[in-house]
Every structure is written in structure tokens, then in C-alpha cells.
């Protein structure tokens, strides 16, 4: 038998060279990519289908640059690409909450504000590495089957009032948004939220903990509201579902306003084309076009007059709605997310 065993050294040598071929494979495949295209990664679904109609198809028609689409925005994947020097994505639309981490980790390149005209965009959504593409609100949402419009809860203190508004409540399973709502419910003015009084927020949450059902995917509240599992919840997709005719009501009172931003990964191969694309996607016509497919708000105020008035009235870009809410502070959450999530999880188990 001894003669049949491959020497250890020889085995290691063969294994290493085969491993090297495996590691080099992406680089070999990469060189096959055409220069005149742009790789976009999105969240898929109706949202990305809308982005195709509103941005990608007209951009290709106007410039001849084809936008190749993939799905699955994932910071971990982006980091692996940047670290290995093989960045497949040229264009990522990321939620503001993740932007801070991406910038901190050196995953994004500064935007070229010579090509992108930032002046037309809401100033609070413009940062060196990211520029707001759509506004998204986390809104108090209720089932109109449970509450008639005149008797529905409108504010976070009312959401917290179990006597006046009985029924199971849904809540996002995480400290972001939730701690802010808990503080507003406890009487903190919405312009004095940050830095968060975390102890007070958890004490406030304790009061309704027993009536909460947690959801962790943005798609979950839809079926929960439909089946009557919950009658009330904060949610980001309520407007789209309302427009689709579901029996839902919303209130902008104390809503958390956030946004998704256009970014370009560090080391992107077609960065110049990506900058041109971003400038194109920020045009009023393109932004208004997107609202036909998905009810997220334009970040360019000039787009609002072009939006169907029925839809425009519901969007968080509407000044009257915006005034009632607060801007979720990505710069606060970036450095605090890890510690506060740890505490959040412990509180859940408590």
C-alpha cells in the first residue's frame, strides 16, 4: 500500500497549481466583457423592471451604451470584488443605511460632479460618494378593514396606544427606524432625535413589546396585513400596494424618510459611462417615468410636476409629506448599527 500513496509534497504542489487555475478563472472570463456596456446590480422585481423602462432602455437608445443587469445588491459581495481587484459591477443603487459602511470600507469611488450636476437634486441627498436616486418613506400603515379612515391611528403615540387601537402590530426587526419611532411615541420632537436616547427608546418599546410581530424582509408585511395577522405596521411599500388597490391607509406623521443612492464601486471598469448614466437617470423625465412603475419618489424636484397627480400626492418627495416626517440619519446609523443591533437582539431575548 505504501507505494500507492502520493507523497505529501507532490500532492500539495498539484493542489496548489489547480487552485491557482480556479482563482484565475474570473480574470480570464472578465477579459471577454465588451467595453461599451455598463453592469448594473439591483434589487430585482417590479422595481428593477421599472428601472429598465425608465432608465436603461432610454439610456441605451440615447448613448448606445448597453446596461447589463444583475440582481442581488450585497455589500459583502461588493467588498469581495473590490478586495480581489475584480469588480464586475459599474453601478449600484444602495440604500442610504448601507452607504456609510460602503464608504467607510472604501468600496465606492467619489462621484464625478463635473459630469453629474448635483444642483438639481435635493441638497440633503448629495454626498461625495452617493447621490439620491429615489426617496423612500417608512410609513405608519394600517389596514382599512380594521380601522375606518376617520378612526385610524395617525401618529406613533397612537400606534403605541394599545387601549385605543387594539390589535397585533408589525414591526421591523432591527433598531433602525424602530428606535426613532419609539422615541417619537415617547414624546421626543422629530427634529431632536439624533443622537438617539437609546435607553429611553427601549423603555418606550417595552410598553408594546407583547403586541409586536417582527418582520425582517420588506416583502413580509404585505401578506401579514392581507391575512389580518397584523393590522398596523411601519412599511416602505405601502404606497405601491395602495395604488394596486389593497385596503391600506397611510400616515406621513413622523415617517422616516430615506433614500436610495446611485454609487459607483471603486475599481469599476466603466466608471466614466456610469457617471454619464447617473446624470441621465437624474433628469426630471426619467425620474417621473419611474413612478409609473414603482411608487418611489423623485429626488429632482423638477420631476414632480410630471408625475401623475394622484401618485405625486402620496410620494415622500411631496413637500407637504416631507415636512411631516424626518430624514433617517445614515451618518448616525453607520458607526452605531453594530453595537445597537447587539443590544437590540439582547432586548428581544430579554
Amino acid at each position: 500500500m505504501v507505494g500507492n500513496v502520493i507523497s505529501r509534497r507532490k500532492f500539495v504542489r498539484v493542489a496548489t497549481s489547480l487552485g491557482a487555475v480556479g482563482l484565475a478563472a474570473p480574470a480570464i472570463l472578465r477579459s471577454a466583457r465588451a467595453a461599451n456596456e455598463l453592469v448594473f446590480v439591483g434589487f430585482g422585481g417590479e422595481y428593477q423592471a421599472g428601472q429598465t423602462k425608465a432608465f436603461f432602455e432610454p439610456f441605451e437608445k440615447a448613448t448606445g451604451i448597453k446596461v447589463v443587469q444583475t440582481t442581488g445588491v450585497d455589500l459583502a459581495k461588493l467588498r469581495a470584488m473590490v478586495q480581489s481587484g475584480n469588480v464586475e459591477w459599474d453601478l449600484v443603487s444602495i440604500p442610504d443605511r448601507l452607504r456609510y459602511t460602503a464608504v467607510q470600507d472604501g468600496l465606492l469611488m467619489p462621484l464625478d460632479y463635473g459630469v453629474i450636476d448635483a444642483k438639481k437634486i435635493m441638497p440633503e441627498l448629495v454626498t461625495p460618494h452617493a447621490i439620491g436616486g429615489v426617496t423612500i418613506p417608512m410609513l405608519l400603515t394600517y389596514s382599512t378593514k380594521a380601522y375606518s379612515a376617520d378612526k385610524a391611528p395617525r401618529t406613533w403615540p397612537e400606534f403605541w396606544s394599545l387601549d385605543r387601537f387594539p390589535g397585533q402590530r408589525g414591526m421591523y426587526n432591527g433598531p433602525v427606524y424602530t428606535l426613532e419611532f419609539a422615541l417619537i411615541a415617547d414624546g421626543v420632537p422629530k427634529d431632536k432625535l439624533y443622537p438617539l436616547d437609546v435607553d429611553r427608546a427601549f423603555r418606550s418599546l417595552d410598553k408594546i413589546k407583547s403586541k409586536l410581530i417582527w418582520w425582517s424582509q420588506m416583502s413580509q408585511p404585505g401578506p401579514m396585513l392581507k391575512s389580518g395577522e397584523i393590522v398596523l405596521t411601519p412599511w416602505v411599500r405601502s404606497i405601491a400596494h395602495m395604488l394596486a388597490g389593497e385596503p391600506l391607509g397611510i400616515s406621513y406623521e413622523g415617517a422616516a424618510l430615506t433614500f436610495e443612492a446611485w454609487t459607483v464601486p471603486k475599481g469599476a471598469k466603466n466608471a466614466a459611462a456610469a457617471m454619464r448614466f447617473i446624470e441621465f437617470a437624474l433628469q426630471p423625465r426619467q425620474q417621473a417615468e419611474l413612478t409609473k412603475y414603482i411608487a418611489y419618489g423623485p429626488t429632482n424636484p423638477e420631476a414632480m410636476p410630471l408625475v401623475d397627480p394622484k401618485v405625486a400626492a402620496l410620494l415622500s418627495s411631496q413637500p407637504a409629506n416631507k415636512e411631516k416626517g424626518f430624514l433617517l440619519d445614515g451618518n448616525y446609523w453607520g458607526p452605531n448599527l453594530e453595537k445597537l443591533t447587539e443590544r437590540w437582539n439582547l432586548w428581544r431575548l430579554g
Binding site: D74, L75, L349
Partner: peptide, 18 residues
């Protein structure tokens, strides 16, 4: 509230806060 498994925490640290 209480069904939290170690993989949930690993996933959070890998993908959310890097």
C-alpha cells in the same frame, strides 16, 4: 422574539456591517 440562531448573527456581521 426569541428564535434567534447563530447564523442570523453571522449573516448580519458579514453582510450588514462588514
Amino acid at each position: 422574539q426569541k428564535e434567534m440562531m447563530i447564523s442570523n448573527l453571522i449573516d448580519f456581521h458579514i453582510r450588514q456591517v462588514l
